[in-house]
């Protein structure tokens, strides 16, 4: 129990970081109605790009901007495969994801792990977030405002504010209309191919940014770090929706719900680990949880229909 409580701040921080990735998934899955599997690759691309640049002395914010850019590039590739080449969205995502595995390795100089040297205090101080900061703040070695929960929390709120603004603009509305009804969107003169590509770029940009943050948090970028990211993203989206859909109607609050969903997901994972589950079973557990939550709406419709009159008087 004590273990669990001690690990909680770390779990919440990590949940917040994955929450940014989940918001990216929300954009494709919920707003565009596309299940985009690129994220499993682009998450690591963001991390790899960030770590390579940062360890070579590039400014932190520039390196994060670069992570955002490479993520958007990955989204662009998936978007072009889907719209210009006519490949189904899921398959386009899988293809990009597969290709990215090699690219990610190439970015990391063909090494499966590249670490940020955090024993060097000069490097560590420059980082935006790190698991070490959690302990440092608790010990009083660092000011409270360096705590990852506060930093990533504020970062997430800023991102949500920007997204809230964007999806309220004409362009953002066009993107939402594309996901809601493509026929209608085209009849209103919206180039749906363009809006889809834009949505995929935006989504993967956020995913890569989240990867860059996680690389800082765990002070390394690792080739497998994005594996299963789409499932974590979907889990966060669904948990957020199940818990908050009745009270959160505003778009910004819906994004916040996704972020909270990711935090809850990591708290649950932490709790299961504290109960002694072998960490290697985590992926199976995640897959099961998401499968069940995705099935619930279907089962509800099939078996729990509202009572209606059937049969009645027969004339024939």
């Amino acid at each position: 129990m004590l273990n669990f409580i001690n690990a909680l701040p770390g779990a919440i921080s990590q949940g917040l970081i994955w929450g940014i990735m989940a918001i990216g998934v929300y954009i494709t899955y919920k707003l565009l109605d596309i299940a985009d599997l690129t994220v499993d690759g682009s998450f690591c691309t963001g991390a790899a790009a960030f770590v390579m640049l940062f360890t070579n002395g590039v400014n932190l914010w520039l390196a994060m901007l670069a992570a955002l850019a490479v993520g958007m590039l990955a989204g662009l590739v998936t978007g072009i495969l889907h719209t210009f080449c006519g490949i189904p969205a899921i398959l386009s995502g899988i293809l990009t994801q597969l290709g990215l595995w090699s690219i990610n390795l190439a970015i990391m100089d063909m090494k499966s792990t590249v670490a940020i040297n955090v024993t060097n205090n000069e490097f560590l101080d420059k980082l935006l977030v790190s698991l070490r900061f959690v302990q440092d703040v608790a010990k009083g070695a660092r000011p409270f405002y360096r705590h990852p929960i506060l930093v990533v929390g504020l970062f997430s709120i800023a991102l949500i504010a920007v997204l809230y603004w964007f999806f309220g603009t004409e362009l953002g509305c066009a993107l939402r209309a594309t996901g809601s009804n493509q026929n209608m969107a085209r009849a209103q003169g919206i180039n749906t191919d363009f809006t889809k590509v834009l949505g995929l770029m935006l989504s993967n940009g956020l995913v890569a940014l989240s990867g860059a943050l996680l690389a800082q948090f765990q002070s390394a970028s690792e080739i497998n770090m994005g594996r299963g990211a789409i499932v974590i993203g979907l889990a966060s989206v669904i948990i957020g929706q199940v818990l908050f859909s009745r009270i959160f109607h505003n778009f910004a609050l819906k994004l916040l719900a996704v972020s909270i969903g990711a935090i809850l997901y990591y708290i649950v994972i932490q709790a299961v680990l504290a109960m002694g589950l072998n960490a290697n079973y985590l992926k199976l557990l995640s897959a099961l949880v998401v499968a069940i939550f995705l099935s619930i709406p279907y089962w509800k419709g099939k078996y729990l229909r509202p009572a209606v009159k059937t049969g009645g008087a027969r004339h024939a």
Binding site: F166, G168, T169, E170, L171, G172, C173, A174, R176, A177, M184, A185, A187, Q188, G189, I190
Partner: peptide, 18 residues
């Protein structure tokens, strides 16, 4: 929002309010 989308039919959609 539907009406606003239709009012902009065929126009460039930029970053002003939807």
């Amino acid at each position: 929002e539907n009406l606003a989308l239709a009012a902009r039919r065929g126009q460039r959609r930029g970053l002003s309010w939807g």
